[in-house]
């Protein structure tokens, strides 16, 4: 061919030895493939295989069976926990995404040159240990906690104050708090990429601030919100620390069940089966979310 490849430099011999760059490309992706196989694919396959085995008297019977799943689907406890976990995760992810969206919008549009600082301040809690943050909520919500103290001095009754700790609401509240920084990160990056001249152009065309949000800002930032929601959901759906710490009995979630099966019950195949249901639910939600994360056109 007479055309000259302008992208390759003069030293590149790729045009002479045709298969060399292709081979080089494979070499470059090998570390990534190894990483994914060892750290992502294999453990999950192992978990999947385990969920089709059976525990008999503490040892694992290596024969294929659907027993675990049948037991789970037949169990009212599992169904109750699944429904509750789904509700808690959906509600707290939605709340977290909504709050994170509002915060990101204000940071991007109102903080000017301090927006990076403000964003960092919102993300800083991530540096604190997860356990510490949940403990902080225990202090706020707990029996001798701040909220209860306020409620007492205001003379509110026991029925009101009992709602704070060891309930479904306290789990939702805490998980919402936990998920906000992650959702914020996703929304912030998309909102920050919408140039301000698009908002000016919309106002120039006669659109009020609200209409501009509806017609321009939201369609362009919806993918970020959807991905933020997806991350928040995956985080909250499988969580077991928060329900264990602030949930009490009425706040128990599927994650706690996994912990029990792998721990005290010493029934790994059953734990694996619960784990697989959690992963499957997460995948289904992510698949739905990905329908909303598609942007019709790239930003310039």
């Amino acid at each position: 061919m007479a055309t000259i490849d302008l992208t390759s430099d003069g030293l590149d011999t790729s045009s002479v030895v045709a298969d060399k760059p292709a081979r080089r490309r494979y070499v470059a992706v090998i570390p990534m493939i190894v990483w994914i196989v060892i750290l992502v694919a294999l453990p999950n396959i192992y978990l999947l295989v385990y969920s089709f085995w059976k525990s008999s008297l503490g040892t694992v019977d290596h024969t294929f069976t659907l027993e675990n799943y049948k037991t789970l689907l037949g169990s009212d406890v599992f169904k109750l926990l699944f429904r509750r976990t789904l509700t808690i995760a959906l509600v707290s992810s939605l709340l977290a995404t909504a709050i994170a969206y509002a915060m990101a919008y204000i940071v991007v549009r109102r903080f000017g040159r301090y927006k990076l600082l403000a964003a960092l301040l919102i993300l800083i809690p991530l540096w604190v240990s997860y356990l510490m943050r949940i403990f902080a909520w225990k202090i706020i919500l707990g029996d001798n906690g701040i909220l209860k103290g306020i409620a007492k001095t205001l003379g509110l009754g026991e029925s009101f104050t009992s709602a704070f700790l060891y309930s479904q609401n306290s789990v939702i509240l805490t998980l919402t708090y936990v998920a906000i920084p992650y959702a914020f990160l996703s929304v912030y990056t998309t909102l920050d990429r919408i140039p301000s001249y698009l908002l000016e152009a919309s106002a120039d065309c006669g659109a009020s601030a609200w209409t501009t949000f509806r017609k321009v800002v939201w369609p362009l930032s919806r993918p970020g919100a959807a991905i933020g929601f997806g991350i928040a959901f995956v985080l909250t759906f499988g969580d077991y620390v928060t329900p264990a710490m602030v949930g009490g009995l009425s706040g128990t979630m599927l994650g706690s069940l996994v912990l029990q099966y792998f721990g005290i019950a010493n029934n790994w195949p059953m734990g694996a089966a619960v784990g697989i249901t959690i992963i499957l639910t997460g995948l289904i939600v992510l698949a739905v979310v990905s329908l909303f994360s598609r942007l019709e056109a790239p930003l310039d």
Binding site: Y197, L198, A201, S202, A203, L295, E296, A297, L299
Partner: peptide, 20 residues
């Protein structure tokens, strides 16, 4: 008077077409 209530239109240097 805010821009959206002015009978004025602007052609921006970077076009500012809505990408979606």
């Amino acid at each position: 008077v805010p821009p959206y209530r002015r009978e004025v239109n602007t052609v921006f240097q970077n076009y500012a077409l809505f990408p979606h």
